[in-house]
Design a binder for these strands. Structure first.
Lengths: 109, 109
DNA sequence: TGTAATTATGTCAAAAATGACATATATTGT
DNA sequence: ACAATATATGTCATTTTTGACATAATTACA
């Protein structure tokens, strides 16, 4: 998930200690991962609610079944873009997406 | 933004008409673009509110000033992942992110 | 006005993500 | 148990995205 970490120095030096810097970056990455997992979960629900198979959804979004499976499995090598595209393809509205970002994900029948 | 479109046929054929299929894909892509633009806007606000320069933010997220500029400019070749990472690096909470997804983006002083 | 700081734009090699495919493993209905 | 159907997992060539860098344009402030 990280890149060419700790190169820094673009303009001025130091700004943040290396230890807290490390922790900060980690926590932000954790937030992103958690966000993705929430949306992956929301996708599973949305797809189930509409009785779509992974193949169906893959067709709708111009992707493949295996990729849909990976999205729902929370595969780290899946972009947020793809997850959100899947949600939209599954018929999720922006408002529903917003709700899915909330603390408690309600399971509507 | 699209890929190897219209290859289809994974399992069964047809499922959706090509015309409405085209429109559907377009509308979903539009939704994604709009979402990105909203978040780009939210980032600009968040960064301004905290008096961070693009260089500051770039350092915080281990990226570069030019990339931050591109995020905020709504450059289509910027991933949702990067946008959200920028928001988190700018100190935006998940709850605030949720609000930013709402219909009206309130401009808090 | 100048000049320092900030932001915008373009390019590119390297890194990451993608769709497609094969195939394994459930799950469901008979 | 069997056969469909659905989902999971692994691999890989191609496409997309990335950070870095150069540099232009804009803004702020003396």
């Amino acid at each position: 998930m990280n890149k060419t970490r700790l190169h820094k120095l673009q303009a001025a030096g130091w700004k943040v200690g290396s230890a807290s810097d490390f922790l900060k970056l980690s926590s932000e990455e954790i937030m992103l991962v958690e966000l993705k997992l929430s949306l992956a979960s929301a996708l599973k629900q949305a797809r189930a609610k509409r009785h779509l198979s992974q193949v169906d959804l893959a067709q709708r979004m111009g992707s493949s079944q295996s990729r849909v499976a990976k999205i729902e499995a929370g595969d780290p090598a899946v972009s947020l873009d793809l997850i959100v595209r899947a949600l939209f393809a599954a018929g999720v509205t922006r408002q529903e997406l917003q709700r899915a970002l909330g603390p408690k994900d309600k399971i509507a029948a």
